[in-house]
Design a protein around this nucleic acid. Structure first.
Lengths: 222, 222
DNA sequence: ACCGTTCTCCAAAGATCTTTGGAGGAATGG
DNA sequence: CCATTCCTCCAAAGATCTTTGGAGAACGGT
């Protein structure tokens, strides 16, 4: 009779755990950590079918990890709070530090051709550089994510548009690129592309997710 | 070709998530957070079959969340590190704060007859009381867990033995009881039992798990 | 009212997870 | 070297999850 209640408690707790137990759902959380998105925005970005995305979002919603907002025919999903982003980030960190499989998979994903880890910039360094105004900060994520929130002072230059920015960047002071976070490949790609075109660029060691969870200021809109 | 690598990364990450996605496994993690245990120690404490426990432990091991140590014919399992206990605690907190179902299930489990939440003691208060030596601190967990680590200065008085301690406790200064943590019912029961026998006891607001993850000193053995 | 858009819900097939008893492996002690 | 203890592995049944296409609901525009 009390045993039952304990089981019920852990059953409910497992609902939250299960929500983090599917790769597809984790991809969605990773995207939602960048800001709110519509269902088909997510489907498009993650390369999944709409029904599939919707089903996974229901699971996240049942676990109270996401909330929704309706605007016309569109439904926007967002994380239910900062604590959810924190939890996701914590899980990622534990996974990466504990599991050799995770860290290998991460390296394989990020270091596609070969390692180019010269000139990493820490958050603290970046803050200092921004305060002194001696940095060109590039947010290389897709525009929607930039609009939903970016580091104050950053300019949105999605990967596809980098080519047309080369001329300007050649004369710029220190160029620093960032993207979603430490599980995101875009800033790696950007630094590689820029380097190949003769623009020396450095990379922020992590990204927007970590910037947010560190409680640093975020700017939204253009 | 790169898409594949991303999927592989999230697949690996989900292995860790899935490990937290089963109620039985969460019960085991809750027990392991108190200290190392043998397989059948866990089976006994959680009321599960040995094969079942062993299977769940393999899942946790595959996710690198637990480690094993062999002593004779026995195999001891323990959490792989403090970060795992932290992650579990963080998940519990998010679940409790976000999900009404979890907090209701928790209340139903803890407040069995009715609420008796008078005289909660915070960690800070307890530290002060311990420093001034004006407290009788009761660890009401089973002996194995007490031996594996307890708050310095605590005396082990498992629930079943409380009756025989009543005489002594009536003369003791402030009595404070604690158990595993905020999802554990034993300290609630202890305060209720003591109160019913005319011993005024207070309860530490959480328990050993939170004490540990706060980085406070832990004493092992007798 | 009707249509197009966006999303949710449903049903069914396929995949994965959980539980179980029992066989088998590892270590110990006689 | 045999018996015992403690644990892991195996196989199979049952339960649960995931994915899918398509029906249908909510909404805005015409």
């Amino acid at each position: 009779m009390n045993e039952e209640r304990r089981h019920h408690l852990f059953d409910e707790l497992a609902v939250v755990g299960k929500a983090f137990g599917s790769p597809k759902r984790l991809e969605l959380v990773e995207l939602l950590a960048q800001g709110e998105r519509t269902v088909d925005g997510l489907a498009r970005a993650a390369g999944m079918g709409m029904s599939t995305v919707s089903a996974h979002l229901q699971v996240l919603k049942l676990a109270n990890l996401v909330r929704t907002r309706r605007d016309g025919t569109k439904v926007f999903y967002r994380l239910a709070g900062d604590d959810v982003a924190h939890l996701y980030a914590a899980m990622r960190t534990v996974a990466r530090e504990r599991s050799a499989d995770v860290s290998q998979a991460l390296e394989a994903y990020l270091n596609l051709p070969g390692s180019d880890e010269v000139g990493l910039v820490t958050r603290e360094e970046l803050e200092r550089m921004l305060a002194e105004g001696e940095v060109t900060l590039l947010d290389v994520r897709p525009p929607e994510e930039y609009l939903a929130g970016h580091i104050p002072g950053a300019r949105n230059t999605p990967l596809g548009t980098l080519d047309s920015e080369l001329a300007g960047l050649r004369q710029a002071p220190t160029v620093v690129a960032y993207c979603r976070g430490s599980f995101c490949v875009m800033a790696h790609d950007a630094v590689r592309i820029l380097g190949g075109a003769g623009v020396e660029a450095r990379r922020l060691e992590d990204g927007m997710l970590e910037w947010r969870t560190a409680g640093l200021p975020v700017e939204a809109g253009a």
